[in-house]
């Protein structure tokens, strides 16, 4: 089996490209104007971070790289508060706190 540099199999079947907004449409949020996620520094994303794992791993696609503006767009209002981004940024560039009490995602099932 063909593998990538980390030893993971490279499969010929492409994964489906899911429209994450559609998934998030099933959720209820209590929106907070106060941003609970902040980037320490956009230059790190631009100059140092080639893989930009936040743009793939975040299950709510909060992070999107805007090629034209050379900027990482953070749609914090889509966050479903899993906490993964705090651990996956290789440059510790993301500050992700909780939304203020009562705000943010409201799971009906969970």
């Amino acid at each position: 089996m063909e593998t990538d540099p980390w030893g993971f199999p490279v499969s010929s079947d492409a994964l489906p490209k899911v429209n994450v907004d559609e998934k998030l449409g099933s959720l209820t949020y209590k929106a907070d104007h106060h941003a609970h996620i902040t980037l320490k520094d956009n230059a790190t994303c631009l100059n140092k971070c080639h893989d930009k794992p936040c743009t793939t791993v975040c299950p709510a696609q909060v992070y999107q790289w805007e090629d034209g503006q050379k900027k990482l767009i953070v749609s914090f209002e889509n966050c479903i508060e899993c906490g993964a981004c705090r651990m996956l940024c290789p440059f510790d560039n993301i500050q992700c706190h909780w939304p203020r009490g009562g705000f943010g995602v409201q799971y009906k099932y969970g």
Partner: peptide, 16 residues
């Protein structure tokens, strides 16, 4: 999480 990070697989894509 480290495997998602390395493979670049998007979690919702994997779910589908």
């Amino acid at each position: 999480l480290s495997h998602f990070q390395k493979t670049g697989i998007r979690p919702p894509d994997l779910l589908e």
